[in-house]
Design a protein around this nucleic acid. Structure first.
Lengths: 222, 222
DNA sequence: GATGGCCTTACAGATATCTGTAATTGGGCC
DNA sequence: GGCCCAATTACAGATATCTGTAAGGCCATC
């Protein structure tokens, strides 16, 4: 079993809970905990340069900042930074997130090793996840292994996401077209963009751009 | 100090954390825990009809359901139901929610006794909150007692919120104008609506309607 | 090499958005 | 009443959105 684990979770009580589980039910005792992204990174660094590097990172996705209320600093950056230094580190994300496509994205893009969704089954899932990851498996949450649901996942490609992002940021299609041209991304005609956005209207049953962004925000895709 | 406490929280790990705190740092040992709203209510009922009723309810606001993924059953209903039977029960809500106006609503409308925001300071706050509530105080979270921030809350009137809502729902200004006329709400000219929305652009530093809705969604106002 | 399907692009017309200016209304106040 | 101020409205022009049609390119398949 893993001997050195880092738990990054800004919600203190959850921290306590995780540590309790790891201690009592998985048999891991050498646990670092961090309530801030920065702090987690520092603790990782210290371990990384020592003789006893962290073998497993368990992290939340969103961290609230102290002073401001609404800023959210992503755990994804933490994962990227840590993986940049120690590519073989195992990563388990556990988060409130329950959008299947978003969770899927974590496995696709960031090669996380496991995912546990906060909820009633978190304890059982966490234990199974840590064990599975230790054995070298990719531990998908039960929701994702169920084929009936995965088939219903709408696949949006990079360009779709980029368009949604830029539209939500208030850029016009003209501006977006110029950006695409600059980055040498094709398609980059206003006509193509129109078509793609119209397609998104169909997918999300939106009446116009504003509605589209509202729907997508509600879904948590942005 | 309270002797009988009911903890309702669907996130198992947080449950564990809370119980640990109450045990070790507050000195409460007779704790019922529930992962479902229904379950919490049953345990409350059982205690209520016995010689040892619950004195304090600590509850989350949102509970995920088992089978479906995104359905959320509100802890507010739990509070209402429990208070209906035992009006003097003390209630502490702790939740992810950090919108000040929303938290304020809980005190205003549901007369909760305390609020703890999940986050880095949750342990300290929870301890202080339980102690304060025991002494009969209303324990506002630090964010709400701080005047500097409450003064900064932007006040939007009903019409502003209505406009934001309708725009997010994909209605055009023409459609909104017609709705307003139907409901005999003034102002109801397209020009006035334009002006008001432009004003919202200024307030939220938005470039256009789509951007505005995105910003407002991010802020949690919609 | 011809066919058909799919994606990209160009173009165009109707509608909506955004931003001004200017006219009108409706209090509050002296 | 007369004045002022702010909010509401009407109107207009430039820009953007949305929805078509049509033409061209790419690629797999026959």
């Amino acid at each position: 079993m893993f001997t050195r684990v880092l738990v990054a979770e800004d919600y203190e009580i959850a921290n306590q809970g995780i540590i309790k589980i790891l201690n009592e039910q998985v048999g891991i005792y050498d646990i670092e905990e961090a309530k801030y992204c920065d702090d987690a990174y520092k603790k990782f660094l210290k371990a990384h340069t020592s003789q006893k590097p962290i073998e497993l990172l368990i992290t939340d996705l969103s961290f609230k900042q102290d002073d401001t209320i609404q800023t959210i600093i992503s755990g994804i950056d933490l994962i990227k930074d840590i993986r940049a230094l120690q590519p073989d580190i195992k990563v388990i994300v556990y988060s409130q997130e329950d959008r299947l496509d978003k969770i899927n994205l974590l496995f696709d893009r960031f090669n996380i090793n496991g995912y546990v969704c906060k909820g009633q089954q978190a304890v059982t899932e966490l234990i199974a996840c840590v064990n599975g990851v230790y054995q070298g498996n990719i531990m998908l949450p039960p929701e994702l292994t169920d084929n009936a649901t995965t088939n219903n996942i709408i696949h949006l490609d990079d360009l779709d996401m980029m368009l949604l992002e830029e539209l939500a940021n208030g850029f016009t299609k003209k501006e977006i077209r110029i950006k695409l041209k600059k980055q040498n991304i094709s398609p980059n005609s206003e006509s193509s963009i129109d078509k793609r956005v119209s397609n998104l209207f169909d997918i999300f049953k939106a009446k116009n751009t504003t509605h589209l962004v509202a729907v997508v925000k509600d879904l948590g895709l942005l």
